[in-house]
Amino acid sequence: MSAPAATAGFAQSLPITPTSSGGGPAPVRIVVAFGFWIFLLSDIIMFSALFAAYAVLSGQTAGGPTSRELFALRHVAVETLCLLFSSYTCGLGLLAIERRRIEAFYVSFALTFVLGATFLGLEISEFAGMIARAAGPSRSAFLSAFFSLVGLHGAHVSAGLLWLTFMVAQTATRGPRDYVRRRLLCFSLFWHALDIIWVALLTLVYLMGAR
């Protein structure tokens, strides 16, 4: 970085303040978060197409098992708790890294990983149980829509776990630098957005389907 003396005159002649509303360029962190938010919204729009498909097809069971017979709400409640608490620990990890508490960051993200992996394990066991009961995705239009919608969310969670592992490794090797923390912010946005999609999924698929 240049010496303070070299930039002092420039800073006095042009009082640029790094805020989006002050006329100057917005902080990189704000711009990065905005760009990632646009990606998340496009992801949510993709999910909305599958939600529409599920809502249309949920009654088309072709004589096969219905949602009422298949869904176990206790199982789903545990999955929901796992995701909710993993969102919370992910937020705590972000706070820890902003305050340069590396140990607390590792603990929070390890918890996030364990909770996310538990969720994924429960979902895989649910899918395996349904396929074993001859209620796989090829059984009926309802089950095809169910497996694509819930499976896509599960694929997102898997990708998130991979990303989480990668970010922890990057934090360990490069330290809490600006760009590492921006990537961690993007990861936390992704993880929280998955939780929002799960809320919609829980309500439309499981709670309304199990009635």
Partner: peptide, 28 residues
């Protein structure tokens, strides 16, 4: 803020422990 380029190194905290905890409580 004067000895860095505009937009670089702005480190405002995102949320707080209280806001995350309130959010978790509401969500539960």
């Amino acid at each position: 803020p004067k000895d860095r380029a505009p937009g670089i190194g702005e480190n405002e905290a995102t949320g707080s422990l209280t806001s995350y905890t309130i959010g978790l409580a509401f969500a539960l």
